[in-house]
Simulated assay, not measured.
Amino acid sequence: MIGYIARRLLLGVVQVLLVAAGVFALTEALPGDAAVTIAGDNPDPAVIAGLREQLGLNRPVGERFAEWLAAAAHGDLGTSLVAPRPVSEVIGSAFGPSLLLAVLALALLIPLATGLGMLAARREGGRLDRAITSTTLGLYAAPEFAMAVLLVTVFAVQLGWFPPTAVGGSLTANPALLVLPVLVLLLRPICSLSRLVRAGAIDAQRAPHVEHVRRLGLSPTRIRVFHVLPNAAAPAVQQLARTADWLLGGVIVVEAIFVVPGLGTALLDAVSARDLPVVQGLALVFACTTVLVNLGADITARALSPTSEVGR
């Protein structure tokens, strides 16, 4: 296991470096540069030249990339071009709301999806199985923005039960602001995750070791919890990792509709303002998050089902 973790960490470092190089190259290829953005409308060429020299944009791209990467390794992601503060501070202030949404969504997603999947697998092809399958497929086909607009129209505008957006409110002081965004975040992942748990549980119920413990007279509940569930959960852990990465990376559509000041909103603002240091910093944070989350998922899946190919 230690060798496996070391190999995955090394692969993750390579992936992060490739993402960082790709993002830096793409932002450099965009028309204009930071000096033009800072100069604003009707810029003076002399002012732009001075800004380029001040920002070091007249130096070779490779030299600037190496300097940026070395600074990023020490936690220095540069300074925002829009707000006079470090990029790490911009990302840190936006990370809290995204993390809060992600934690709440995952805390509800894991038990709900596992319970639905195990419930559907109890009687394969039965009425309950067909009802859960039909409902989850229907919800999964609905786009997030459509479900968000529908929920806001019904529960915020017509019924007035929840605030329509988070504008002017604190997510921690007013938990009602979190209800609709978290519900939208749950709809699609709970469908895909419950389907994977269902499929894994059906396969596990037919496994020889489960048949053996069933012949030994163990109760159905004990068999499902201790023998079926671990094998059913192993494949679903991979999907859960992708969902966690999707949530931590900032769900742009959901945050934009509900005006949540998270990472997705920060990315949209940085792109629209051509704030390239913030875009590069966010890309690096997203890459690191993806590597760490998937590493944790692979280790968990391998621990749950050591004999399977999941996480190898």
Score class of each variant (00 low, 15 high):
P84E: 15
L106G: 13
R274Q: 14
R222L: 09
T307C: 12
L186M: 11
I132E: 00
S308W: 09
D298V: 07
A207Y: 08
L26S: 06
L186V: 15
G3D: 10
F95L: 13
L77K: 00
I91Y: 05
V23R: 01
V278F: 01
V254E: 00
L119H: 12
L240N: 02
F226R: 15
A297I: 03
W68H: 05
G138E: 08
E144Q: 12
L150F: 15
P45C: 05
A207N: 07
V179N: 05
A148W: 00
A166F: 06
Q158I: 10
T114Y: 11
A273V: 10
F24I: 08
A301M: 06
L9S: 01
R195V: 07
A287S: 03
A173Y: 03
T153H: 10
T289D: 14
L185C: 11
P86T: 07
A25V: 14
D203Q: 10
S134E: 11
V197C: 08
V228C: 01
L128K: 05
I38S: 01
T221L: 14
G40L: 04
T37L: 02
R206M: 12
G249E: 02
F258K: 04
R274M: 10
L295K: 04
L229Q: 00
R198Q: 08
P261F: 04
G22K: 03
V197D: 02
E28S: 15
L100R: 11
E309H: 13
A94T: 13
P261R: 04
D298W: 02
L183A: 15
L55Y: 00
S134W: 14
I202Q: 10
A234E: 04
V271Y: 15
E309P: 01
E124T: 14
L248A: 04
E124S: 13
A148L: 12
R302I: 12
Q280M: 12
T289Q: 07
T300F: 09
L178M: 10
P86M: 12
V61H: 00
P277I: 09
G311S: 11
N58L: 06
V213C: 04
G40N: 05
Q54G: 09
R215K: 09
A71Y: 05
G117I: 14
P181F: 09
W161A: 15
I252V: 15
L177Q: 04
L171E: 03
V152G: 08
W161V: 13
P208M: 07
V36G: 00
S93F: 11
V90K: 00
